[in-house]
Simulated scan of single mutants.
Amino acid sequence: MSADMSPIDKAKYAAARRAAEFVEDGMRVGLGTGSTAAWLVRRLGERVRDDGLKIHGVPTSTRTADLAREVGIEVITLEEARWLDLTIDGADEFDAELNLIKGGGGALLQEKIVASASDRMIVIADAAKAVETLGMFPLPVEVIRFGWTTTQKLIGNMLGGMDVAGREMSLRMEGEQPYITDEGNHILDLHLGRIGNAPQLAMALNQIAGVVENGLFIDICDLVVIGHIDGRVELCDINAGKV
């Protein structure tokens, strides 16, 4: 670990290094997207190079695929893998039930597909991502480009009946152009402030025509590895019901 790292990067690195220990020889591993997941990919690359670890990685974005190949991880598609032993990814928020908001990096669709096709999902995060109630981080919703303004209006109408603190929405931009996901879609970021019933909202969003997927990961995560800036690591295991 470099002494030049920022405190938050030190926390992310600590979490990623600990999570990498769950990866065993011969595993098919889902590789997440984002700054924390990038530390995990680099650490697994070190194990491949230095320890002879043999794994197949299924990336959740083109960015992750490029990094995995760069550090020496053998990359395969989800179609080739069929099913995964483990997925390790970051999160933008997580609550006490290990429900998540994901998608800040723009890869929520592939991330949710890969996580759902795994025996186990481990999330790596710094301590600041822990919240009592989801919603302070804008909730990403991936929508098809055709008629996205209509989809936005339908989402707004639906939010009127939901237990949320706010209803503002914004189209995610990349410079002066709308952000385009790996699947060719737009992302609407929902600024809700607080989500009173995350499972209900997740279900309602995916019933709206034009919505491809939302960034609420409900009952998918099994374990959160929390890194601290001093190098300490906490494990929050939903199955064990304890830290």
Rank of each mutant, 00 (worst) to 15 (best):
I155C: 06
A115P: 04
E234S: 09
G34Y: 09
R47F: 04
S61I: 04
E93G: 06
M169V: 10
R42F: 05
N197M: 02
I180R: 15
M1W: 04
A204G: 01
Q110D: 02
I238G: 03
E70P: 03
G104M: 08
K129G: 06
S61C: 07
P59D: 13
A38P: 02
E24H: 15
S61E: 08
M121C: 13
G210V: 10
S2F: 02
V23N: 09
L100A: 13
G227Q: 05
T181I: 10
G104C: 05
I113Y: 11
P199T: 05
K242I: 14
P138W: 00
L190Q: 13
R145Y: 05
W83N: 06
A165Q: 01
F94R: 01
K10S: 09
V58P: 12
A19H: 09
G103F: 04
M5P: 00
M158K: 01
L98F: 07
D222Y: 08
D50V: 03
D92P: 04
V225N: 10
R28I: 10
D237I: 14
G52K: 14
A165H: 01
R194I: 01
A128T: 12
A240Q: 15
S6T: 13
L40H: 12
G210R: 03
H56R: 15
S35L: 00
E93C: 04
V131E: 08
E176S: 10
E142I: 13
P178N: 04
N185T: 09
A38I: 00
E213W: 01
D126M: 03
L201T: 02
R145W: 10
F217R: 09
G105R: 10
G231Y: 06
K112I: 07
L171M: 11
D237Q: 15
L192M: 02
D92G: 03
C221E: 09
T77Q: 13
E80S: 11
V29K: 07
A96D: 11
G104S: 08
N197V: 06
A68R: 04
E46P: 04
G227R: 03
S35D: 09
L171N: 08
K102G: 08
G227H: 02
L216N: 08
S2Y: 00
L78H: 04
E176M: 09
W148L: 05
R49L: 14
D163R: 00
A14V: 01
D25W: 13
V225E: 07
M162N: 01
K153C: 02
T151H: 12
G30L: 12
E142R: 14
H191F: 05
D163P: 00
L205M: 04
V41M: 05
V143L: 12
D9V: 00
D237N: 15
